[in-house]
Structure formats: C-alpha cells, structure tokens
Amino acid sequence: MHYTIDPGLYALGNPSKQSPVLVTANYKMSFDKLREALPGRDMWILVLDTKGINVWCASGKGTFGTAELVNRIESSGISQIVLHRELVLPQLSGPGVSAHHVKKLSGFKVIYGPVRATDLPTFLDNGFKATSEMRLKTFTTWERAELIPIELVGNLKAGMIVIPIFFLFTLLGKSGEGWTNTLGHGLFSILGMLTALLSGAVLTPLLLPWLPGRAFSVKGLSLGILFTIILSAFGWGDWITRTGRIEILAWLFLIPAVSAYLAMNFTGASTYTSLSGVRKEMRWALPIEVGAGMVGFILWFGAPYIA
C-alpha cells in the first residue's frame, strides 16, 4: 500500500493560525501534486482517508465525502489550530461533499478550489476565486495520451489469452496447407489482433476529438475499418483465392468489432461521458460488436471449409 499516505493534518512550510487549510485525498499522487503545486507556501493540508484513491474517484464513491470530512475535521483538531473557519477543497470532490451539510455539521465553510492543483497559486492569490477556465475538467491530447499505457496493459493481458487461441486455431484448422502457410496465417492473426488493439486502445483515445461520431464505438469502428482496409491492401496478397477473400472478409468483421469494443471501454477513462449516455451507446453497440466478432471468427475459422 505504498500509494497511500496516513490521513490527518500536515503542515506545508511554516503555517500559522491564519494559514489556509487545503483538503485532499490520501492517494500519494494527489498529495504530492498538491505539495508540488505550492512551493514556498505556508499552509495546512488536511488529508482524508479515501482508501488510497484519488479525489475524483473517491468523491464519486463517497469516501471523499461529507461524513469523512466532518470526522476528519473533528479528529485532526483543526478548529483548535486555525482561527478561521474555511476549508479549500478540490472542485472534483463536489460529487461526494455537500458544502452546506459540512457547514451545518462542523461550522467550516467549504470553498471549492480549482480542478487542477497547478491552478492553486493563482486561485489563492486571487482571493480564493477560480476563473471559469479553472473550473473545467479538460481532456486534452496529452491527458488522453497519458492514459494509453494503462489501457494497453489491461488489454494486452486479455490479448495474451486471445492471440494464442487464434494461433492454436490456425494450427488446428489450416495444418493441411503445410507448415509455412500455417505459420503465415498464425502470424497474420497476431498482426490482425494487434492492429485492432492499436486502433481501439491507442489511436482512438489519441485522436478522439477528430474521429467521426459521438459514440466511442463509432469512433473505434471507423478507425478499425480504415485499418483493415490498409492492412488488406498492403498486408498480404491473398486476394486471388476464394479462401483468401473470405479471410479478408473475416478480418473486416473482426478488427472493427474489437476496435469498437476497446474504444467503447475507453468511456471509463474519459472525463465527459455520462452513465446514461454509456448505457444508451452500449444498448446497440455491444450486440453489434459481439455479433460482428462472432461472424468474423466463424468466417475466419471456416474459410478453408467454405471455399
């Protein structure tokens, strides 16, 4: 649990009885980002017990919530340490904290600070006022790029199961064609799966605002189709045989389906999708993705027999 720090009151620099009190989660990175944003400042930091989880997650869950805050105000003895009765909370703790209830229960006034810790110095210097820009949760290209490794690792774990299965099926289904051919098919299936992964879990997140459609599945689907076309145009010269054409068709189902599914799963990492929206998207997207995936797999596996 080295991502966790002990909840309680911390002093940043040399705080006095008048120094502001900032509240944060006991996820180490939340705490560190807060400290790093305030070099040379004297203030109090009240760390809540959010089970080592970041502010936004914890507030959605309620662990960064009214009850924990009120209890922590009490147990930290902050009311004896400072003379004022104000706490600066990260704006993204709003889903968990009810400012008027905190006031009623503890006497402390909750002031919502900016979304990003890096805006805190300006916020503090402007008399606890955040500009409208500071209040917006963005999802910039860089912020999306930062999420890609995590997405990739998670999906590669699943890929470690799926890719060998495809390889195994190649060996089973196409061994009649000779070893070199079988190996070629097997390697191509790996290439196909990696293409889907690249399309759905890397490039869709990265190119999100510029891809067509609002639903993430549509974004992933269009990129998947594009990649399959590129792959089938350059990747291999199997257009001649009927089996080859069926296989191309199979990948035309498989890659977009997987890409769309992975893109859909990126909704969880995004900062602007609503649950109602995700449910609506999934109602039509999930059956299509699963269906297209199954059709693709049947075509792929059955290609030598159908032809």
Partner: peptide, 25 residues
Amino acid sequence: MECGACVRNCPAEALQVRSGVGCAV
C-alpha cells in the same frame, strides 16, 4: 456527465440527476 456534484451541493434541492460513472466496463 452526471457526476452529481451540483445536486449534492444545492442547498435548495432544486437539482436532480441520476448520477453515476460513465464507464462501459
């Protein structure tokens, strides 16, 4: 995005939302 922050911080209970996390997984 239906995070529910506005509802929770409205002292007049003027806002309503079915809050949740928009995550397909």
